[in-house]
């Protein structure tokens, strides 16, 4: 049995760990609020954007634009959006395993796969496969539109250049504070956007066609890259919020686990102490008896 002093040291150590996990929990809670706010702010933009894009693309041929051209798939690219830091439970490994499954599916069909990793964790894992084409580390802590633009432009360039024929986006979507689910999104070629809502608003209001300036085709040339930015930015925001939510849960669990361990150890400590006292008492009583004798 461990000595009293050993148990005491262990208890102190576990208590210190629980202080750290508790602090991390609170930090994540604060960061989560910030990330969620950003998501809220972005939502109207994304919503309006899809609406507008839907209304333009509904009356256009999709194969006119390089970014919308579907072609036979030889090389597929997977954009993996993960967090930069760990200690957030199974959040990153869920995303990674989803991306890996997707890779296996493509490779079973005889297609080549390349990766674009956004966030450190994805790169750490996929580095060893040697398929990472581009890596964007250390951008998940501060969300910037120009980061999203850089990624989108890079991916679009390799798509238009014919190096990749299809692009999927794998990220952790934020459902609630308690639930984050990995999700795959078809990224390129851009699929025609459902324009139900847009056509509705057009028919209930003024009749007649839009005046476009410049031509619809040229507008699409501007809008499609913007649309990609929106998708990447959205994925980054969701991963950011999910990361903090996942870390909050993980750290909460860790704090609880620490508490259990401390309880157990305290029990052991008390038992050991009691045993020592009993032993001492026996000695004293024994000694006293002997003196009486």
């Amino acid at each position: 049995m461990a000595s009293l002093k050993d148990v005491k040291t262990q208890i102190t150590g576990v208590k210190k760990t629980s202080q750290i996990t508790k602090a991390m929990n609170m930090v994540s809670a604060a960061k989560l609020r910030g990330a969620q706010q950003k998501m809220e702010d972005f939502r109207p933009y994304a919503g309006k954007f899809n609406e507008a894009l839907g209304s333009i693309s509904s009356n256009m041929q999709s194969n006119e634009f390089p970014l919308m051209q579907a072609r036979e798939v030889n090389t597929a690219e997977i954009i993996v959006v993960t967090s930069d830091r760990g200690l957030c439970g199974s959040f990153n490994s869920n995303i990674i395993s989803m991306a890996e499954k997707l890779m296996n599916k493509y490779e079973a069909e005889g297609k080549k796969v390349s990766f674009v990793c956004v966030g450190k964790k994805g790169n750490q894992y996929f580095k060893k496969t040697g398929k990472v084409r581009k890596n964007f580390p250390d951008i998940m802590s501060h969300f910037q539109m120009f980061n999203a633009r850089e990624i989108a432009q890079d991916v679009a360039a390799s798509f238009i250049g014919g190096e990749t024929d299809e692009v999927q986006l794998v990220y952790g979507s934020f459902i609630s504070v308690a639930r984050q689910v990995p999700k795959t999104l078809h990224f390129l070629p851009v699929q025609p956007i459902e324009a139900e809502e847009a056509s509705e608003t057009a028919s209930e209001g003024q009749q007649g066609a839009y005046t476009y300036e410049p031509s619809p085709e040229e507008i699409m040339d501007v809008l499609l890259p913007l649309y990609m930015n929106v998708m990447v930015y959205n994925a980054m925001l969701e991963v950011g919020a999910s990361e903090h939510a996942a870390r909050m849960t993980a750290m909460d669990n860790a704090t609880n686990a620490c508490k259990d361990i401390v309880d157990n150890l305290t029990m052991i400590y008390n038992k050991a102490r009691q045993a020592a006292i009993t032993g001492d008492l026996m000695d004293i009583v024994g000694g006293a008896e002997a003196l009486k004798g």
Binding site: Q206, A209, Y212, E213, P214, I219
Partner: peptide, 19 residues
């Protein structure tokens, strides 16, 4: 500032889309 220069929009403008 639109694609082809500045443009003005008043109430009840017709359907219009510009960069």
């Amino acid at each position: 500032p639109g694609y082809g220069g500045d443009f003005g929009v008043l109430a009840n403008h017709s359907l219009f889309l510009s960069t």
